[in-house]
Simulated assay, not measured.
Amino acid sequence: MNRIAIDRRAVRWREGTGIARYRAGLADALARLPVAVEPIGDGGDTAARPGWRDVPRILHGRPAGLRTGTGWLIPDLYRLAQRRFTATGALTRIILRDPPAIVHWSHPMPIHVAGAANLYTVHDLIPLTDPELTAIPAARQRRLLGRLSQVAAQFVTVSESTASDLRALVPNAGERVTCCYQAVDPGPTGALAPGLVPGAYLPTIGRVESRKNIEALLHAHCRAGTGLPLVIAGPDGHWRDAGERRRVAALLAAPDVIRLGWQDDAAIAALIANARALLMPSLAEGFGLPVVEAMALGVPALASGTGAAAEIAGDGALLVDPRDAPALADAIGRIASDSNLRAALVTAGRARAADFTAERFAARLAALYERLW
């Protein structure tokens, strides 16, 4: 049987960020294929921290994996590899006795396994294309992708938009870039947040930050005058400047705005499933997970009409230019008040969401792995 290694985080972290959801989908997709899956790393186990004798080997890029059951244990691999890359700009090369044919890293880690085809999933290139919208340093991402392009058998992206950006920004990547999208499963729904009435609110999901276009969304919601509260769910994120942060803080105090903090996956699913419509006019996305979740749940969605968000939504969502304030307000008003529009979006959205099932993701991965084998 063919053997594939994945970073151990993909089999441990099931909730949280979009990358965590991707990891879970990757592990689930591999479980559908006739392959032996071998987790690699430590998954954050504090009991697996290295002793002082192990640290120099890892920091100098010479760790050796210990075979444990069906996987490989390398204590504190991820943290120390990141520290080594920050200090030296070098990748950590792992030596495994009888390595698997393929190692699929769930995001660009500064690590590679000798004697295996190393694949790296690139979720977005926002630090390079829109550096003002993220706290991730552009120079670090550029350097990391450049180093990885020297050892990668393939870069895997979650959208064709990101694939195109990767080819343009990392010339060495060339033909070693394949879009496999990702699997989307909203999962079971939990309890709706107290005070919310099903069908009588408009949510937006994700980090509350510049990239999500929160300031423009708050103004557009006020201008649309739908009579429905805007529910903003997610932790605080990165702001372009202190002025924007202060303005948003003032707008969040409006009586028709409900600010929720971080929510677990079941709460997010409930928040989307019971909404009149989802509003996601982001300025930049690598994929756009909440929009696909809404389409899968039969909820109409408004999405950005640019970049990866527009590609992923297709004709399954109402697309709008996120920087056009009047158009954004008009679109919010339409999706909130036009039941015929919402019904049409639900039908188109369900059809579009079918492109992102676990079965289709597994099939795309299988085709990629087959080429490498």
Rank of each mutant, 00 (worst) to 15 (best):
L73S: 10
A216T: 09
R360D: 14
A47D: 13
R350S: 05
R323M: 09
L365P: 03
V177Q: 08
T86L: 14
R140Q: 13
A114W: 04
H112V: 09
A343Q: 13
L318Q: 10
L80W: 07
R342W: 01
D7E: 07
L271Q: 08
Y181S: 10
L77Y: 06
A168Y: 05
D236E: 14
T226M: 04
Q141T: 10
E15H: 11
I205R: 02
E38R: 14
H219Y: 11
P235W: 05
A294V: 02
A343P: 06
I332K: 10
R223Q: 15
G237I: 01
T162C: 12
D54F: 10
Q263A: 13
H123L: 05
G43C: 02
A267G: 09
A249G: 15
G261D: 11
R334G: 02
R93P: 01
G234E: 13
R207F: 07
M1V: 12
P290A: 07
D321Q: 08
A135N: 14
A273P: 04
M109G: 03
L345Q: 03
S304R: 09
L368K: 12
A20H: 15
A294D: 06
T157H: 03
D124K: 02
R371S: 12
D264G: 06
D54S: 14
R371G: 15
R8A: 15
I74L: 14
I205W: 02
I258D: 09
T306A: 13
Q263K: 02
S159W: 06
G69P: 00
D324R: 12
A270D: 06
V197Q: 15
Q182A: 01
Q150K: 10
L26V: 11
A117I: 09
V208D: 08
Y120G: 00
L169Y: 07
N213W: 05
R364E: 07
R57W: 11
T129H: 04
I4Q: 03
L125W: 00
P171G: 05
V122Y: 00
L318R: 08
W262L: 13
V113Q: 05
L96I: 04
R350H: 08
E160T: 13
G206S: 09
D264H: 11
P198S: 04
D45Y: 10
G25A: 10
A266H: 00
H221W: 05
R246Q: 12
G316Q: 05
A254Y: 00
Y120H: 01
T129F: 05
W239Q: 06
Y369C: 03
A117C: 06
A351D: 15
I258R: 15
G89L: 03
G227K: 07
I40W: 02
F85R: 12
R211P: 04
T162G: 02
Y78M: 13
N2E: 12
H219G: 06
L289D: 10
S161A: 15
R147M: 08
G146V: 06
I214A: 01
R23V: 06
L319W: 07
D54N: 12
A303S: 15
V113D: 00
G61T: 07
A138N: 01
R360T: 14
A277W: 03
F287D: 07
Y120C: 03
D236W: 04
I335T: 08
R360A: 14
A152Q: 03
R223G: 01
Y201C: 04
G314L: 10
L345P: 01
Q141L: 12
R32I: 06
Y201M: 09
A153V: 04
L302E: 06
L30Q: 01
A366M: 04
P110S: 05
S161E: 11
A233F: 04
T68F: 14
T129M: 01
V158I: 14
S149V: 01
